[in-house]
Design a protein around this nucleic acid. Structure first.
Lengths: 352, 352
DNA sequence: CTTTTTTGCACAATCGATGGTGCAATTAAT
DNA sequence: ATTAATTGCACCATCGATTGTGCAAAAAAG
């Protein structure tokens, strides 16, 4: 029973065992040994010792010395949501493919928490940071900038560095048109029968709302203000908005555009409180895709943001030399009701 | 315009600025200064300089010296699933409350990737590791053990260290009974009309299947083998199982137990390919809770695993001195159809 | 058999923070 | 006015890896 365990082997241990210096061991194990003209046989010896003693480098020490860590961060607003969790999933695959270590953290949509978290990540010398859906991207930027950390915005844009986001305006238009089209079969839709719920005063919401209103105006000629209910990004507030509407009108709007799957959960809470008939013939458009949401008992048209392309684009940009901040729009996809799309999980092999 | 930026301030910088030694600066900034009998006024001076120059400690250096990092890891099989993403969300809140930094990584249910990932985390001297749903918990254990890293299993148990998991047997029973009960109103259910889909040969699946079979045997007296279809944890395989059944029988089973929300997505894919009538009167039980899943157009009874309690229990255990491995079962909750429960996101304040 | 070149590696400084030890200056005790 | 006790802090080794530099020994050139 070999018994050096409990303490990890270091290059110094291997240096003693091999009779070489620590720098030689280091060079062999990190691949720079050819440059240092180390004999193949020495390298072999050291490698076999490393294997035998289960050596793995202390990455904190390496990071301290080289001020790079091999860590790549993704800052999310929340985990518990299919949009962001699929972003995390896709992100991890990309980072792994580059031989780095992904680390995913959420900051609860709290600007202060965002900055604090990023500072912590910086203290670990992460190499790059992807900032997704930040409430205050420019605040995060300032922190990154001060530390010379490469970073990029996702989902919500900032003004100080590149941003890769959904084409929310176009998506908003697509979704609104699809909702209206879907209602054609029945009695023609009136402008005040089409509402929008959810979202806050951020770029994504503003653009989606702009798309929504423009399409309404183009089709109906009018676009009543009271049809816009930006209830933030919480299920509870959204539910309240539905309850209020229902209490006043005795029914739900005939059709509505829901700003995100999180707001959609607010609708579910409402539905859970009311009999089935209350929503027998609503039509819903949701700006986000959730496979289960797509199969609800009323027509649900969804927008799937193209996470794969967004992440791919972001990596492409972050690898390039720094340039003037730009907004990169990725076209989202309209998903008709009752559609189960493949997702990042399908890339995983399932062994038994 | 102050211009020392681009390089982060270190204790040495502050040491020069303050005229004190680096060790004094260090002591002041990490709170051990009283023990070192440093004058209040010196401490104040240093703190103000630190503030002014935006000093933040280099955590790699600190970690290297003290071989602790303040990082707590959560290893997930996948991100993109409400069960695991809510686990991540809850985990983060707990870790933050302890003043540490949560880091969440997924390993794609690949035993080798699991070990590799854990080794990487260990190289960063993480302080504790939560291993959720690992395919090979004991393999992970070996790696942790060798490095003297405290760890605990979640969701799927290992034999070498404590495990906090759902009471899958009890949950399986609960869900099976509920499915059968739900069918009572109509023509009585026959034993061969109740199937189970999904899951692989792991502890959770085995226990759920055991509960399922025992209840069937208790109620029907029989429990046909062909009603058990453990199709792994992929949507694609599960879909295929449904297709096969449907091709053979011309309809879906009248009622079925689906082993996880991931498998449930396989059912969605099937449904997307077939007309509505195909599943007009099925009854589904799913071992996992997804708010959208709960509102599908057929009755969906779900099991919500009590993630909050699991995480809380796990933290409680990991803080205690090491003891003989034990299995801690957390009772899951039965969720009737059309129920929108609150989740970890509700703890977040939504500012606008 | 020298001189030059190449090969193969060791040495030591460094990254930033920590904590044990020791010592001068101040204060208290006698 | 001494001696003893306390205060306040500096010094230095250390964590584990990286990297520029330098120097012997071996090989090649002359």
């Amino acid at each position: 029973m070999r018994q050096e365990s409990k303490k990890k082997a270091t290059i110094y241990d291997l240096s003693v065992l091999s009779g070489c210096s620590a720098s030689t061991v280091s060079a062999v194990l990190n691949g720079t040994w050819q440059k240092r003209r180390i004999k193949e046989s020495t390298a072999d010896l050291i490698r076999s010792l490393a294997e035998k003693h289960q050596y793995t480098a202390n990455l904190q020490a390496r990071g301290l010395r080289s001020s790079r860590s091999g860590l790549v961060g993704l800052l999310l607003p929340v985990h518990d949501n299919r949009y962001f969790s699929s972003m995390a999933q896709t992100f991890e695959a990309h980072v792994r493919a580059r031989g780095q270590c992904p680390i995913v953290v959420s900051a609860c949509r709290d600007p202060q928490e965002e900055r604090r978290t990023v500072e912590t990540l910086i203290s670990y010398s992460i190499d790059e940071l992807f900032v997704a859906g930040a409430t205050d991207p420019d605040g995060v930027h300032a922190v990154c900038e001060a530390a010379g950390l490469k970073h990029i915005n996702l989902d919500l844009p900032g003004t100080k560095t590149h941003s890769v986001i959904s084409d929310n305006y176009e998506g908003g238009r697509l979704l609104t048109e699809a909702i209206i089209r879907h209602c054609q079969g029945d009695r023609p839709l009136e402008p005040e029968e089409l509402y929008l719920f959810g979202g806050r005063n951020d770029h994504a919401s503003r653009e989606r709302i702009r798309g929504f209103r423009e399409v309404k105006r183009e089709i109906f000629g009018v676009d009543p203000d009271e049809c816009i209910q930006p209830t933030g990004y919480s299920p509870a507030m959204t539910q309240k908005a539905f309850e209020t509407f229902y209490a006043r009108e005795g029914h739900l709007p005939r059709a509505f555009f829901i700003n995100s799957s999180i707001n959609f959960e607010g609708l579910l809470r409402f539905l859970g409180q009311h009999p089935h008939e209350t929503f027998a013939d609503i039509v819903v458009g949701c700006y986000d895709y959730d496979p289960f949401g797509s199969f609800l008992p009323f027509p649900v048209i969804m927008i799937r943001q193209d996470v794969e392309s967004m992440i791919a684009k972001a990596f492409e940009i972050i690898d390039q030399p720094r340039s003037a901040p730009q907004l990169h729009l990725i076209r989202p996809e309209l998903v008709p009701p009752r559609t189960a799309l493949m997702g990042p999980l399908d890339a995983l092999k399932d062994i038994d």
